[in-house]
Simulated scan of single mutants.
Amino acid sequence: MNFVQPIRDPECIFYIKRFLKEQSERNYMLFVTGINSGLRISDILELRVRDAKRPYFNLIEKKTKKKKRIDMTPALQRELKAYIEGKEDEDHEYLFKSREGINKPISRSMAYKILRAAAEYVGLDDIGTHTLRKTFGYHFYRQTKDVAMLQEIFNHSDQRTTLRYIGINQDAMNNAMKKFKI
């Protein structure tokens, strides 16, 4: 299994959003939902139209089987509201529907392909579906410096795990190496 990184550069995020929006609204919203919620891809793909109508996500995490409520950012609420416009009578429909079959979500591998294409467009390596969650965590931490809150959001057992997970430790090592001289 490859180790994936968060997308640290806001400019890359901007260009990925633009690239995905030109592809399809679904692909764009998949990315926006991931980087603004901190949810795992397995939980994002299970979201339905009815889930986008509330200002929070109420779900049982697939991985941990724990019940979780995550408030949406105002920006994500606005984006989802626009995305589901005209789908008011389709509460049971998946938010990120596959073109295959009737009312099936896209697969995890399709989500990966979508993200890889966007990453390739902006010249990023070490990108996968988990990048969405890590990107959320990285920017949440940079904005709030609240590792305890992020640890709680991610359901991690300790803060060191959270910092390593979002790449903050890697940033510190990279910066230290740049300053090192003999």
Rank of each mutant, 00 (worst) to 15 (best):
Leu115Arg: 00
Met149Arg: 14
Lys53Cys: 07
Leu45Lys: 04
Ile60Gln: 14
Ala118His: 06
Lys62Cys: 10
Asp126Val: 00
Met72Phe: 14
Ile70Thr: 03
Lys134Gly: 03
Leu59Met: 04
Tyr138Trp: 12
Val147Met: 06
Lys97Tyr: 11
Ala52Lys: 11
Arg26Glu: 11
Thr131Tyr: 09
Tyr121Lys: 07
Asp51Phe: 08
Glu100Thr: 14
Asn103Pro: 12
Val122Ile: 09
Asn155Cys: 09
Ser37Tyr: 09
Arg142Met: 13
His130Ser: 04
Leu30Asn: 04
Ile153Glu: 00
Arg50Asp: 06
Asp146Ile: 05
Gly137Thr: 09
Val147Glu: 06
His139Leu: 09
Ile60Gly: 10
Lys87Pro: 03
Lys97Pro: 13
Ile114Ser: 02
Phe31Ser: 00
Asp146Pro: 03
Arg54Leu: 15
Arg78Ala: 15
Ser109Glu: 10
Ile60Thr: 15
Leu59Phe: 06
Lys81Pro: 12
Arg50Cys: 10
Gln151Arg: 03
Glu90Gly: 11
Thr73His: 13
Leu76Lys: 07
Val49Gln: 02
Glu93Cys: 11
Tyr112Glu: 03
Leu115Asn: 01
Ala118Trp: 01
Ser98Cys: 05
Val32Gln: 13
Lys62Leu: 02
Ile44Asn: 01
Phe31Glu: 00
Leu124Ala: 06
Lys62Pro: 01
Glu90Trp: 11
Arg99His: 13
Tyr121Gly: 00
Ala148Arg: 15
Gln151Tyr: 00
Glu46Trp: 01
Asp125Ser: 08
Arg108Trp: 05
Ala148Glu: 09
Asn155Pro: 01
Thr129Arg: 01
Ile41Cys: 02
Tyr28Glu: 00
Glu88Ile: 07
Ser98Gln: 02
Lys113Pro: 00
Glu85Trp: 13
Leu39Asp: 04
Met29Val: 02
